[in-house]
């Protein structure tokens, strides 16, 4: 019992964390090369060489940082990503944490991510990192609302806040068809909360790396791994909430999850490379004026459809 309830979930979460972060790095590299970036060397090896370089590099200090918070923030972000990964159901029984309110717990992971990202930028005690931190807070609050509405939408047909129930409610029809607005909106949220690609406003090029601009060495490695793992956790939630999770013919449940998560990751990483960075002001306006009303429509749609049945 201890084995099943304590050891297995930890192994699953750790394996997905490491393997997922690695595959994000490989996929991003392959997509960049396909889009014309000059990169030599083996894409399978490049995440490892980069990781090794960050491990041997010195972890620098800035002048008078909030040292504990600064070192803790990447680890906390990694912990949040691991919490997110623990919620992903791989099959009906293989779930690390099958909480009755796992959808809400994912919402709190998103909310606490805001805190951790702010802490990362604030505690470095450097202007550009601080600007990145402020920016993420302003934007993060707008992603949260959209995410909540979209996730309530998928909880309605399942009549449950449990992700396994959400998956099982898609036996007949996947939510991506049943609620066509949901997945696109949720993908935007995903780019935002993992600050990736066009919505990478916290660690952006105009801030020379933003909240991570002053970090080097092992803490930077942890931060990079945590960002990639958060993207994986997000894709797991998106696959469960909209793409029918483990459901599917021929393959076994966990394999289907891997396939669907990789598909979501590929879309996100591709978007991250082909679209320029969105201006923060435009992003906030778009979130509140366009996407939030759309999320409302999605929720009403889901509600009406749930009443119909």
């Amino acid at each position: 019992m201890i084995l099943n309830e304590m050891v297995l979930p930890i192994i699953v979460v750790l394996a997905v964390l490491v393997g997922g972060a690695y595959s994000v790095a490989v996929m991003d590299r392959v997509i960049a090369t396909r889009l014309g970036a000059p990169r030599a060397g083996n894409p399978w090896l490049s995440p490892l060489t980069r990781g090794a370089w960050l491990l041997v590099q010195q972890a620098n200090v800035t002048e008078a940082p909030d040292g504990r918070a600064w070192r803790l923030a990447p680890a906390l972000y990694l912990a949040l990503a691991a919490t997110g990964l623990a919620l992903v159901p791989w099959s009906e029984t293989l779930v690390a944490t099958d909480l009755a309110t796992s959808v809400v717990l994912w919402g709190s992971v998103e909310a606490l991510a805001t805190v951790v990202i702010f802490l990362h930028g604030w505690s470095a005690n450097a202007p550009l990192a601080l600007i990145g931190a402020y920016r993420y807070v302003a934007l993060g609050l707008s992603y949260l609302l959209i995410s909540m509405f979209v996730l309530i939408g998928v909880a309605l047909p399942a009549e449950s806040l449990q992700l396994t129930q959400v998956v099982m409610s898609q036996e007949g029809l996947w939510n991506v068809v049943r609620q066509p607005l949901g997945l696109p909106l949720f993908l935007v949220v995903g780019l935002g909360m993992t600050f990736w690609g066009p919505l990478n406003l916290a660690d952006s090029t105009d801030l020379a790396g933003g909240t991570a601009s002053e970090v080097s060495g092992p803490p930077r490695l942890v931060w990079d791994v945590a960002r990639a793992a958060m993207l994986v956790a997000f894709s797991g939630i998106a696959a469960s909430a909209f793409l029918g999770g483990w459901l599917g013919p021929w393959l076994s449940g966990p394999l289907w999850m891997v396939v669907k998560m990789l598909a979501v990751l590929a879309v996100l990483l591709w978007l991250g490379r082909v679209v320029p960075r969105v201006a923060p002001e435009r992003c906030v306006t778009g979130m509140w004026v366009v996407l939030l009303p759309l999320a409302f429509v999605d929720l009403i749609w889901a509600g009406v459809a749930a009443l119909w049945q």
Partner: peptide, 8 residues
């Protein structure tokens, strides 16, 4: 374009 984070 590099500043706009659009390497490709």
């Amino acid at each position: 374009l590099r500043l706009a984070g659009w390497e490709s």
